[in-house]
């Protein structure tokens, strides 16, 4: 599903350049649950951003579902963001001014679904995450774990093929983290959604079926 071939990423710094990723080759099959691990500054977040089409590699080829990403136009990428890729962030990134319901609905708005379709999809997700009672609350009225649940609900409501999660439990304590990780596992196993997460925690990594260690921009082993 995802194929990286000799992907490099560097930023100009003064007269030289700061290499973040060097010749990364990586293949991820559909249905995998991959954990990317590594110390701070090793390039794991950058790798995730490249996988999520948020950043472009400086060199190398990226094939998403067999298609070359660098050949895609802006519209096609936006289509992928709308349908194929879901994001979960460490800081949740919910829109403070919108209610739980409205936050979950937002990706569907960009997919231009009809009102009734949106309603039923959001209702399904709320039901599944047991959040029906909280649908009219604003993010700041929820605990961190609940906010991240909303974040995940928002990520899956558009039924993506892959979820990219950047330290999804980084801001949560261990009980809440466990709930979130169980949920990811369930999504992976029942819904067959490919999940790629960046994490520091060895425990969290065990929920996945593959671990990628990254250090100084290289994939280890």
């Amino acid at each position: 599903m995802i194929q990286l071939q000799k992907i490099s990423k560097h930023y100009p710094v003064g007269f030289g350049k700061n290499e973040i990723l060097k010749d990364v080759d990586l293949t991820i099959e559909e249905g995998e649950f991959v954990s990317i691990m590594g110390p701070s500054g090793s390039g794991k977040s950058t790798l995730l951003h490249i996988l999520g089409l948020l950043e472009e590699p400086s060199a190398g080829q990226y094939l998403f579902q067999g298609e070359r990403v660098d050949k895609m136009n802006e519209k096609k990428r936006t289509q992928l963001h709308r349908g194929a890729i879901g994001f979960v962030f460490q800081a949740y990134h919910l829109i403070d001014e919108l209610t739980v319901y409205e936050n979950i609905e937002t990706p569907l708005l960009y997919k231009s679904l009809s009102g009734s379709e949106r309603k039923s999809k959001v209702a399904d997700v709320l039901d599944r995450f047991n959040m029906v009672a909280k649908k009219d609350l604003f993010p700041n009225q929820l605990s961190g774990g609940q906010q991240q649940l909303v974040g995940i609900a928002r990520a899956i409501v558009a039924e993506p093929r892959v979820i990219l999660a950047d330290e999804p439990t980084g801001n949560l304590h261990s009980d809440q983290a466990k709930v979130i990780m169980e949920l990811f596992k369930q999504l992976n196993e029942q819904d067959k959604i490919t999940i790629i997460q960046v994490t520091h925690s060895d425990l969290n990594a065990t929920y996945g079926n593959r671990i990628i260690q990254i250090r100084d921009g290289h994939i280890q082993g």
Binding site: H81, I95, E97, T106, P107, R154
Partner: peptide, 16 residues
């Protein structure tokens, strides 16, 4: 900023 970035990640076009 967060909201703007997020909307882009969710698939909002610049135009939108």
């Amino acid at each position: 900023g967060g909201e703007i970035g997020l909307r882009k990640a969710l698939g909002a076009m610049d135009r939108q």
